[in-house]
Design a binder for these strands. Structure first.
Ligand SMILES: [Zn+2]
Ligand SMILES: [Zn+2]
Ligand SMILES: [Zn+2]
Ligand SMILES: [Zn+2]
Lengths: 149, 149
DNA sequence: CCGATTATGAAATTCATTTTCAATATACCG
DNA sequence: CGGTATATTGAAAATGAATTTCATAATCGG
């Protein structure tokens, strides 16, 4: 973690940026937080370390991390976007519509078939998103908990 | 087309709704328009038939069609949503980030693998979205036309 | 420390979508 | 055919996430 934060710091410096306490808190908070957080969730958590951090800074910092390749923006159709660390390898998502649980999965076979499809259409892919919505084991079995999203 | 419009009319009636000229124009316009239209695009086209139709009615009518199962809401991450007729069988999309072209594809193999994945996690899927973003043949070959989206 | 530049947070803005509301249109009943 | 209850309309207002603006503060390099 320390290593990572220092590396990011260096990259920001190299790109003509400056260090700042607020941003450092946000970045560390982001990597410590559970994945798939909204800006609002992260802002709340980060404010526990530093009451004065504005959500605008959280927005800006996540855009920055995305530009540097450390974060990925997600959209599960909830209105607000979510973000996850981009350090782990590529994966797609199962999203529970009742409790909000997000299950990650990686399926080489599906990825290969996607490549075939694009090739068949002369299409040059740069990114893709695959999300499966429904109900997780717990919610599907009737013992549903939590708010519906 | 006539048959379809009458059927929808009947369903609206049966559900306690009333007929209306504005809505009829929007519905017919939707099925005549090219697929994957935005509300704004459809509003513009529909206003050529009836200058007085407000975009709110287009919003409302598409939500209605979606509820009745005749339309599908899409989100290619452009800010505004798009809609397509839900009469054709399920398919996924290749979206060109330069010219905006949308290529539809259907891959049973991918769908089957998705089922396997969900089963493996005890997840009960109700919907999914698979979009591949990149550049279509024409745009990838350098002879790019059109605005970037 | 200086001067230049970047980062910050609050407030204002944007933009798609939704809600509100008073006026209008439609269906249904007698 | 009215008459009335109810649904629909379009304009305007509200919403809400995300972005921009701007004056102030922090940081860097020298
Ligand atoms: Zn669940
Ligand atoms: Zn993930
Ligand atoms: Zn293209
Ligand atoms: Zn389509």
């Amino acid at each position: 973690m320390k290593r990572l934060l220092e590396r990011i710091d260096r990259e920001i410096l190299a790109a003509g940026g400056k260090r700042s306490r607020s941003r450092a808190v946000v970045i560390e908070g982001f990597f410590r937080a559970r994945d798939h957080v909204t800006i609002e969730e992260l802002t709340r958590s980060v404010r526990e370390s530093d009451k004065g951090i504005g959500s605008v800074t959280v927005y800006r910092t996540l855009k920055l991390l995305e530009r540097l390749g450390y974060a990925k923006e997600l959209d599960f159709g909830e209105g607000a976007r979510r973000y996850e660390s981009n350090l782990s390898p590529h994966h797609d998502h199962l999203v529970c519509r009742r409790c909000g649980t997000v299950i990650e999965f990686e399926d080489r076979e599906i990825e290969n078939l996607q490549d075939l499809v694009t090739r068949r259409h002369g299409f040059h892919p740069t990114a893709h998103r695959l999300e499966i919505y429904g109900f997780c084991r717990k919610c599907a079995s009737g013992k549903s908990q939590g708010r519906i999203r």
